[in-house]
Design a binder for these strands. Structure first.
Lengths: 192, 192, 192, 192
DNA sequence: GTATAAGCGAGACGGTACGTCTTGTCTTGGC
DNA sequence: GCCAAGACAAGACGTACCGTCTCGCTTATAC
């Protein structure tokens, strides 16, 4: 996609990883609000132009820096008992959203997306939350024969704990055991 | 804190309303991202210090400017058929979050709250979404005798459509009729 | 000219002098080529905007910082013997152009003016060299009854030593005694 | 210095001339101030390193690009009537300094030399102006038997019109006829 | 009625991030 | 080993906004 001709100095992989690591570090040390492109470049020991050459804004570089972590933290084995797998997934989701650094970045990006179309498009390009839930949701849907679409089921599963956390209530009041059980019962009910 | 002695020139109510109106107008015209304290003051024909005197940051003035609208848009009559009232409320909620100016402001504030403790405290000071749902949620809880707490029930009601909208899917795919029905069935089910 | 209305915070005189002193200091310490608006602002302990608010470019601030010195260094008493006064003036001129800090600045500005219309206009707004020579030139013209205009006479006086210095030959080879004498003889000659 | 061993690819003459032509063109099109090494290389269709390999800075390449033109424009036949030859030379000098592209480049370089020792050394390496005047000046000196050195005479001839042009007065007010006459009379006068 | 106090609009202040630009160097593959 | 291409680190550019400050003016209560 980049440098199709093969001519010119190739992209420096070390610069790329230095930037991503700098973002990770700074996110922990000073937080999202204090992140600046200038600060990232300086911390990475990289020219500012090099950052702008490969990422067009703070959101893009932050997204790339945390997407891998996010995927890893949200992936659960699956394939076992549906109820158990659901609870495991919800625990991972709650931990990610409320305690993980990658989750902090993701919440900030989701916030930014509410008033920045570029960030919204970036997040829409890959539905990290939806993807992470896909396996357990599909297993539950198949086992129940529900009429709910994947999207409806995903919203039903993720929505309640997400609202809880986004509205500042923290993760303590969330009972993933109950959430999993209610989710399954709603799916199993013939009328929906 | 403010003029306890009664001496000195009193606060100018016209300046206050001019600021709030300027915020409303600018939010529509240029959007949240382009809002600046400088721009607000200039649009209101007010000194910048006057804005800072009464609101400590952009979030506070925006919150005050949209809270009244938010409350009005989210208040539904209630007292009728529970299912019907729930659907009416959900329609109002979806319209607020996805189409209203006040809702745009609220989403932006909720986003900011994810990485700004001051904004988080501001939103926590009054749970606009939760309050708005309280009447219909309580009516449904009382009618069903559910074991779910008010908070759990509220998250169950608001979470799914909120996730849908916040993740950039828009409001079109939301079936408030089904959401209301599923919500009631979950409450009525003895096991939860 | 500035702040005609009298409203708003008045210009800070201390900031203005801090900038001019910073320019003076930096010119000596790091030289003209290394002067930057950023560096001036930092050295003066002043915001960069403050510099840009009152001077539109490096040339303007440098001009203001050195014009006073230039005028002082080039002013000679006059009123005595024409030949003596001319030599005194030429000595001052040569010292200014070849050794003084203000003269270094002036040569740099004159150089910049050759390819920057703004700087050219700035220098044209006040002909520092011409002005400084005016008194001695007029005295000589009046005493001789020459047909040469002020401008022609000024060029005749200043041109040769200026060429010498600008072309990098330094000041050592300049005999101001002879220059003064030749200048007077050219003026006194009836044919010119 | 350059490729003494004869090994490796020889210097590309076409690259060299492409650079010099690019400088000539850009000087006319965008002016000296906007000239950049990057722009020169791109215009010449040449790698930037190739420019740096043969010229160490903007001044050097500009000097080489305009020196030939400068020499040509300033060379006058000579050998005729001294007064006539002087006037011809002064006309060429004034045209060069005030209207020629090469002259524009030369004025810019002379300006740069005032605060850049490298450029000063470059210009000092070959005294283009002095050389150009040498023939007519020597002819006049020999004919007059003046006591003035070549350098003094050259400064006397070139200085006044140079000051006129460098100080932004343009070429219109210069009377080369009179300048030539005065120059000759000063040389002929026994006392100098 | 006059002193005192505080709010007001305006706008300059020091500070700092923005995204772009140019510099001179380095690193590819191709000639 | 030169060449075109183009990425690299560095750092200045001029602009924008931040939150504070300093003016003269206005509008109140308190003496």
């Amino acid at each position: 996609m980049v440098d199709e001709s093969g001519r010119g100095r190739p992209r420096s992989e070390s610069a790329r990883t230095a930037v991503l690591h700098a973002v990770d570090d700074l996110l922990v040390e000073i937080g999202y609000a204090a992140l600046t492109m200038k600060g990232i470049a300086e911390r990475a020991g990289v020219g500012r132009q090099t950052v702008y050459r490969w990422w067009s804004n703070k959101a893009e570089v932050l997204y790339e820096a945390s997407a891998i972590d996010a995927g890893r933290e949200l992936s659960v084995p699956g394939g076992g008992d549906p109820h158990e797998d659901l609870k495991t997934y919800l625990d991972a989701l709650v931990a990610f959203l409320s305690r993980s650094h990658a989750g902090t970045a993701y919440r900030a990006l989701m916030g930014e997306a509410q008033h920045d179309a570029d960030v919204a498009a970036l997040l829409a390009s890959r539905d990290i939350l939806g993807e992470s839930a896909a396996a357990v949701v599909e297993a539950a849907r198949n086992a129940s024969g529900t009429a709910l679409s994947s999207e409806q089921a995903t919203a039903l599963l993720i929505g309640p704990p997400l609202f809880h956390i986004l509205s500042g209530r923290g993760a303590d009041g969330i009972d993933t055991e109950q959430l999993a059980e209610r989710f399954l019962r709603t799916l199993n009910h013939p009328g929906t």
